[in-house]
Simulated scan of single mutants.
Amino acid sequence: MPSVPSVPPARRPPIRTAPGRSATSRALSALDAFDDGHRTLTLSAIARRAGLPVATAHRLVGELCGARLLHRRPDGRYEVGARVWQLGLLAPPTSLREAALPHLQDLVITTGRTVHLAVLEGPRALIVERLASSRTQSTRHSPGGYLPLHCTAVGKVLLAHAPPALCAEALRAPARYTDWTVTDPAVIRRQLAAIRAAGFAQTSQEHRRGTWSAAMPVTGPSGVVAALSVLAPLTAPRRADALSPLAAAAAALSATVLDLDLDGMTGEPAS
Rank of each mutant, 00 (worst) to 15 (best):
E98L: 13
S204T: 01
E79G: 15
A50Q: 00
E79A: 12
C151R: 08
L52C: 08
A57N: 03
A91F: 10
A27N: 10
P19I: 02
T114F: 03
A153V: 07
V128K: 11
L87Y: 10
L147P: 09
P14T: 01
R209S: 02
A30V: 05
P93T: 04
T178I: 07
R140H: 11
L70M: 08
Q205K: 07
P269G: 07
S3A: 05
L262R: 05
P221T: 09
A55C: 08
V218D: 04
G122R: 10
V225K: 06
P269R: 09
H103E: 12
L104C: 07
A153H: 00
P5W: 06
A198K: 02
G144I: 01
M1H: 07
A193R: 13
Y78T: 12
S254Q: 02
R209G: 01
A82G: 03
A194N: 11
D35I: 01
A270C: 14
V80E: 02
E63Y: 13
R113M: 13
D184G: 11
P217I: 05
A214L: 01
T136R: 06
H150L: 10
A226H: 05
V224E: 04
P102K: 10
V54Q: 15
V54N: 09
D32E: 09
L52G: 07
H141I: 09
T235C: 04
V218E: 10
T111H: 11
A173E: 14
L158H: 13
G144F: 03
L89H: 05
T219C: 06
P9C: 13
L60I: 15
A194Q: 05
T203S: 02
A165H: 10
W85E: 15
D36M: 00
A132L: 11
G220A: 12
L158Y: 08
D36V: 05
G51I: 00
I188K: 12
P19F: 10
P237D: 12
R48T: 14
L158F: 05
P14C: 03
I188E: 08
P185D: 13
D75R: 06
Q202P: 00
L228E: 03
H141G: 03
H116A: 09
A91N: 09
R83Y: 13
E169C: 13
R26W: 07
L87T: 01
A227G: 12
L158K: 10
G112I: 01
R190V: 09
A50N: 00
V230E: 11
A248K: 06
P8E: 15
T17V: 06
P93Y: 06
P102S: 01
A160Q: 02
Q191T: 09
A99I: 02
A125M: 08
V157Q: 03
V257H: 03
T114I: 04
T56N: 14
T24A: 15
